[in-house]
């Protein structure tokens, strides 16, 4: 379990011309927990604190107040950090920021070497990871010859090779085309079925996280609402305030209900056709 208690976080201070010290506080007293194998979406506007929150989870950053525990270990307990970082992995928006190898194989091997993965099983593990994410490239392929979508799959393969217990995706699909995005998400869920891990998914697109167990909405550095998606989907005003757009059919269902037309919240094109044909 990930357990975050009253955690606050500020980015590094800076001094202005009058030598006044400024800090920008990005998280205020955040409390949340994420259970093993849960699928949790983190939502909120740019700058609301989602990304900073995830950086606390694997100890890249430490809270200025409060605590973060990963499977019972505190992130401020530095001897625990190697285990914590192994358990909690992040895939970022821009895969190029986390590529370290010249080739696909080297890139996946880098993280494995760092955790002391047995050398004789390395090749097998690399092939396993390439297969798991459906990357259509052999291990000798230079990273520079991969397309954006392929680079993102490689970033995923490199972290899944380490068998994380918690995987954070920080808008990891934002550079992918719709089909690649669908495949990437399917790959993720397939991988979770084979080797369960908790998925912590940051996105601005709600249709990608309708299947999540929980949505956690950040607003100005605080958790504004934490609950199942259904709790959010009928609150269009709140979502709009937080810069989120309902998926088309959900918005249509709400707009129809507002006009007194009786339709289910999970409206689809077939239901809509039936509704209109009843009268035609």
């Amino acid at each position: 379990m990930l357990d975050i208690r009253n955690a606050s976080f500020s980015y590094t201070d800076w001094e202005d011309e009058e030598d006044t010290l400024h800090t920008s506080r990005v998280l205020h007293q955040v409390t949340a927990s994420i259970a093993a194998n849960e699928f949790v979406a983190l939502l909120g506007r740019n700058g609301s604190g989602k990304s900073s929150f995830t950086r606390l989870l694997n100890g890249i950053e430490l809270p200025s107040e409060g605590t973060v525990q990963v499977e019972g270990r505190f992130t401020h307990d530095s001897p625990s950090l190697p285990l914590i970082r192994r358990a909690v992995q992040i895939v970022f928006q821009n895969p190029e920021n986390q590529q370290v190898g010249m080739t696909v194989g080297e890139d996946i091997a880098f993280g494995l070497s760092n955790i002391g993965y047995p050398q004789q099983q390395m090749q097998e593990r690399i092939a396993w990871a390439i297969d798991l994410v459906g990357l259509d490239a052999d291990e000798d392929r230079p990273v520079t010859r991969l397309s954006g979508g392929e680079k993102q799959k490689l970033a995923l393969a490199s972290v899944l090779a380490l068998s994380p217990k918690y995987l954070i995706l920080d808008e990891a699909t934002s550079m992918l085309d719709p089909l690649a995005r669908k495949q990437f998400v399917a790959t993720l869920h397939e991988a979770r079925k084979r080797h369960p891990f908790a998925l912590i998914y940051i996105t601005h697109h709600l249709e990608e996280v309708l299947e999540a167990d929980r949505w956690v909405l950040f607003r100005e550095g605080r958790i504004h609402l934490d609950g199942p998606p259904a709790q959010f989907l009928n609150n269009e005003a709140l979502l709009a305030e937080c810069g989120l757009e309902l998926p088309y059919y959900h918005a249509l269902a709400l707009a129809l209900q507002a006009k007194g037309v009786s339709v289910p919240a999970s409206l689809g094109i077939e239901e809509l056709r039936d509704l209109l044909c009843r009268f035609n």
Partner: peptide, 20 residues
Amino acid sequence: SPEEAAAVISTALNQQQILA
């Protein structure tokens, strides 16, 4: 848009009800 579609649909449904 969803809002425009809802307006068009509810108008159409109302007209059909009146005709019915």
